[in-house]
Simulated assay, not measured.
Amino acid sequence: MTLEQLRIFLAVAERQHMTRAAEALNLTQPAVSAAIAALEDRHGLPLFHRIGRHIELTPAGGLLMTEAQAILRRVAEAERALGELRELRRGHLTLAASQTVGNYWLPPIMSAFRRQFPAITLDLVIGNTEQVAVAVKNGAAELGIVEGLVTEAQFEQLALPGDSLLLVAGTQHPWTRLQQGRSYRDVVTSEALRNVDWVSREQGSGTRQVMETVLADLGLDPAKLRLTLELPSNEAVRLAVEANAGLTVMSDLAAEVGIAQGRLVAWPLPEAERAFRLLRHRDYHRSKAAAAFMDLIAERRAGAAAS
């Protein structure tokens, strides 16, 4: 039983007439008669009573008419839904982002996307870089944006404008007071930083990766850092540093509030510019919504480069 056979059958059933059905479908009458005969032969049941030149539905025909109407209605709904997806008049896009990206960088872009495509539902899952990569790998998110390094070959990656990393301490921390009047070149050294307490993100976060790399470049062994706290979010790290629990390396996006309110002091770091990365699985079909979101990011990326 094919959809075309069901359409022909329904046209005949609704008109109770082979010729009129053929005219409505732009088919020949023999083609319509052949389709009805094929349905009857396939199921071994008559669908119409032939009374002279008049036809009427049999009980089997009445049952099939009800089912055919429901099936073809669902087919029409499916075709309409696919058209809406194609034209971005409906749809759903799940994003995954590491914490710095998801909490500070991505929300304005999501807001702009929603203004442009209000019928597309956006979901955002926030985790560390490793968790975002797993979500994209498993298909739980179609696009991921991270600040950490991801090396798996199954990802397409697009570099994006990112942030800058700062050495951050609480305003009232004893170490901070010792640095008053010193230039950042004197503060950001292995000697000045060797015997201080540190607050850090958890293993697997992009910020943790970069913090360890920056400190290693300054001559400090990450394995020998005196970690007082290891916390699962940027906000928790910021609040702990504001409470003078130790120093940290943090995105300027995450530190901005504490600096503006006078609770944090920050020093720039060498080679501290950091690109974010957009991840997409190479083997998964890219939805229209994902393509539109990537186009919007590309536009912003081009605008940032031009300014």
Score class of each variant (00 low, 15 high):
residue 182 R to F: 03
residue 183 S to F: 07
residue 183 S to T: 06
residue 184 Y to P: 05
residue 184 Y to W: 13
residue 186 D to Q: 10
residue 187 V to S: 02
residue 187 V to W: 13
residue 188 V to W: 03
residue 189 T to W: 01
residue 189 T to M: 04
residue 191 E to F: 12
residue 192 A to F: 12
residue 193 L to R: 11
residue 193 L to N: 08
residue 194 R to G: 09
residue 194 R to D: 04
residue 194 R to S: 13
residue 195 N to H: 13
residue 197 D to I: 00
residue 197 D to T: 03
residue 198 W to N: 01
residue 198 W to G: 00
residue 198 W to L: 03
residue 199 V to S: 04
residue 199 V to M: 07
residue 199 V to F: 09
residue 203 Q to I: 06
residue 204 G to D: 05
residue 204 G to M: 04
residue 205 S to E: 07
residue 206 G to W: 00
residue 206 G to I: 01
residue 207 T to I: 00
residue 208 R to N: 02
residue 209 Q to K: 02
residue 210 V to N: 02
residue 210 V to P: 00
residue 212 E to N: 04
residue 212 E to R: 00
residue 212 E to I: 01
residue 213 T to G: 05
residue 213 T to L: 04
residue 214 V to L: 05
residue 214 V to I: 11
residue 215 L to K: 05
residue 215 L to C: 03
residue 216 A to Q: 07
residue 216 A to N: 05
residue 216 A to R: 09
residue 219 G to N: 12
residue 220 L to C: 09
residue 222 P to A: 12
residue 222 P to K: 06
residue 223 A to W: 07
residue 223 A to S: 12
residue 223 A to V: 15
residue 224 K to I: 15
residue 225 L to K: 07
residue 225 L to Y: 06
residue 226 R to H: 15
residue 226 R to L: 15
residue 227 L to D: 08
residue 228 T to E: 08
residue 229 L to P: 09
residue 230 E to L: 12
residue 231 L to S: 09
residue 232 P to D: 13
residue 232 P to Y: 08
residue 233 S to M: 12
residue 233 S to E: 08
residue 234 N to I: 10
residue 234 N to G: 13
residue 235 E to D: 14
residue 236 A to W: 07
residue 237 V to W: 05
residue 237 V to A: 08
residue 237 V to Y: 05
residue 238 R to A: 15
residue 239 L to A: 14
